[in-house]
Amino acid sequence: MAYKSLLTLASSAEGVAAAVDAAARVALASDAHLDALALGVDRSQIGYSYVGSGAVILQIAMERAEEEARLNGKALKDALAAQGPDLRFSLDSAVAQLGALTDLVSSRARYADLVVLPKPYGKGSGPEAEAVIEAAMFEGQAPVLVVPERGFAAGAAPRRVVLAWNQSREALVAARRALPFLKAAEQVVITIVDPPAHGPERSDPGGMLCQLLVRHGVKAEVAVLARTLPRISDVLARQCQDLDADLLVMGAYGHSRFREAILGGATRNMLESAQVPLFLAH
């Protein structure tokens, strides 16, 4: 198994270079094709405009979205040109209203083995950045590699990987989808934070998953950690720092997206603060 069809999308110019560089490294190492899509988003709320002004507002909003798509397309084009002549890629652009963004993104993501995106929070990022990630994972059913400002690992594949494990469906899906990265890594640490004393894996936390991965040739081991910090995401972040990890793999949105948006959760916390590339699947 290898990633043969990759997709990256730009809803703003921020983070495009790091995301394209990461996607290109993976594509070149896997002899894969990279599709790049520049997005322009119409964020107008026409339902709240004065009577008779709707057409004018729509026209202005569409012109802004088209200009945004051009700027994002230029950022993508420059980043792709910096990757050298061996990269096979295509570049396209599209404009959509914020409410229709999910359909547009999912229609592209469902035909990709891996979607590579910049970190959704930070300077220049709007609400559409998180919407793109969620659309790719939920409706597009694609794993997502989120690349922070510092970029991807030095090589085409991460050397040390932290795999977050909590026995959930989402975590298992993430582990399976990340197999190409896991098999290429020098070390994969299955990390379990404060496992339940009466759970199904109480006698051997992470043992069955470790066995599964080892049979695939993954150099896996298990680490069971106490919850010494207030949030699970903080413990995982410290584990990545302690191991000098190049990638964190985790299942995404074990709770509902609405609950995470209001109350927070491990997925949202990691997306906000991740210092290493983050591999997510749902």
Rank of each mutant, 00 (worst) to 15 (best):
P85R: 12
D194F: 03
A109C: 01
A197V: 08
F258P: 00
V146D: 03
G52Y: 08
A274Y: 01
L98Y: 06
H282P: 00
S168K: 14
V193S: 08
Y50V: 08
Y50L: 13
A261P: 00
V132P: 02
L9C: 10
N166R: 11
N269L: 08
E139L: 13
F89R: 02
Q141M: 07
R70S: 10
Y48S: 14
A22W: 03
I262D: 04
A184S: 14
Q141P: 00
A82Y: 00
A96Q: 00
L172E: 14
S168W: 10
D92W: 09
L172T: 15
T228R: 15
G140L: 05
D103C: 00
P180R: 12
A18Q: 13
A197I: 07
A29V: 12
A245S: 09
A19K: 01
K4D: 15
A2K: 15
M208Y: 12
R257S: 01
P120L: 02
E186K: 14
L179E: 13
S5K: 15
H255I: 03
R88V: 13
L6S: 08
E170I: 11
V116K: 07
K183P: 00
G151E: 03
R169E: 14
V276T: 07
R177M: 15
S168V: 03
S90E: 02
P158V: 09
T267D: 03
D113A: 04
L9A: 12
V193L: 05
E272V: 09
G151L: 02
P143I: 09
S49L: 11
V218N: 02
P118N: 06
R160T: 15
A19Q: 04
A174C: 06
G206Y: 05
S203L: 12
L163I: 15
E66Y: 12
P205D: 11
A220S: 09
S12V: 10
V105D: 12
P118S: 12
D21K: 13
A154N: 07
A274E: 02
R202M: 04
H198Y: 05
A65L: 10
S107M: 03
K123W: 08
V51F: 14
A131D: 10
L117S: 07
D246T: 00
F152N: 02
Y121D: 09
G254D: 07
A174E: 10
R259A: 05
S256G: 08
D244E: 13
A281K: 04
P196R: 05
L225W: 05
E272T: 10
P195Q: 10
Q83S: 01
R227H: 13
G84R: 06
I190S: 06
A274N: 13
A19V: 08
A112I: 01
L229M: 15
Y111G: 05
E128T: 08
D86A: 13
A17P: 00
T102Y: 00
R202F: 06
M62A: 14
A154D: 15
D194N: 14
P143S: 09
L182V: 08
V41F: 06
A75Y: 06
K74C: 03
P200W: 00
A29Q: 05
E66W: 11
A220R: 08
V224G: 05
A185D: 09
P195G: 10
Q97T: 11
G122E: 09
L229D: 12
P120T: 10
Q83H: 04
T102F: 00
H33K: 06
A164P: 04
H216A: 06
V161I: 15
G254M: 04
A153D: 01
L117N: 05
D246A: 01
P180Q: 10
K123C: 03
M270A: 13
L247D: 04
L6A: 11
S30P: 00
R238S: 14
